[in-house]
Structures are given as structure tokens and as C-alpha cells.
């Protein structure tokens, strides 16, 4: 099982725990199979994550771009700048991991090192 972001779920995967909206109403009960239709519905209700049967381990950072393609010196420079800015935060906190990933992506985009 893996709790993954809803933008990464795929039709055909099985929901392992109830998907609920913010008020706690169940949108999809555990055991449901995801379809293009119900993925659209849970997205429109603002659901951000789902527990599915896929054996995916999202790396904490660096998930939606290929760091291997980036010049290592340039990457190192961006990471040093970010590490300084993030130095008062606990890097293992799920919020910080996600925020760091977002910021890394933005910095690499603005440096022209990755494409949108």
C-alpha cells in the first residue's frame, strides 16, 4: 500500500482506505476501483492524497523531474542556496519535504535547468 498524491493515481488501482472529503463524507469506500470518472470526482472535491494498492515509493523529493540530466555543479549550487534558506526547518517533516521539493523544482525551472 502507498499513500500517494491524487495527481499520480491511475485508473485500475484499488482504494485501500476510504477517500473522504473535508467534512468526512466518504467519496469512495475502501475496495473501490479507481476509474477516470471517479478520479475526476475526488479531484474536484479537493482530495489531495489516496491510499492505493500500487507499490509506489515516491521519493520524498525529486519526484517529478530527472535530476540525472542536470549538470551536477549547477544542481549543487541550487541545492546549497536552498539548504541555507531551509536551515531552520526539520528536513524530515512531511510538510518540509514537500515544500523543499516544490522550491527545488521552481529554482531549477527559473535557472533554465529543467523544462516545465
Amino acid at each position: 500500500m502507498s499513500v500517494i498524491r491524487v495527481s499520480h493515481v491511475k485508473a485500475g488501482q484499488i482504494i485501500l482506505s476510504d477517500v473522504k472529503d473535508r467534512s468526512g463524507r466518504v467519496l469512495l469506500p475502501a475496495g473501490s476501483e479507481l476509474t477516470h470518472e471517479n478520479i475526476k470526482i475526488i479531484k474536484s472535491w479537493g482530495v489531495a492524497e489516496a491510499d492505493v494498492d500500487a507499490d509506489l515509493h515516491e521519493p520524498a523529493t525529486r519526484s517529478d523531474f530527472q535530476l540525472a540530466d542536470i549538470d551536477s555543479k549547477q544542481l549543487e549550487h541550487v541545492e546549497i542556496v536552498l539548504a541555507k534558506r531551509f536551515r531552520f526547518l526539520n528536513k524530515n517533516h512531511p510538510f518540509t519535504e514537500e515544500l523543499y521539493r516544490l522550491c527545488l523544482r521552481r529554482e531549477l525551472l527559473s535557472a533554465g535547468l529543467i523544462d516545465d
Binding site: R5, V6, S7, G46, A48, E49, K84, R85, F86, R87, F88, L89, N90, H93, P94, F95, T96, E97, E98, L99, L102
Partner: peptide
């Protein structure tokens, strides 16, 4: 720099980190 996060504050928001994007 970024001021430190209070873990209790993040928990109070009751949001998935995946909403950040």
C-alpha cells in the same frame, strides 16, 4: 531565511502536504 515550523501548527491545519503544489 525560512522561520522554523511548529509541528503542532501544521497538524492543526489538518491538510495533506500534497495540497501544497
Amino acid at each position: 531565511d525560512i522561520p522554523p515550523l511548529e509541528d503542532a501548527a501544521w497538524k492543526m491545519l489538518d491538510l495533506s502536504p500534497y495540497v501544497l503544489t
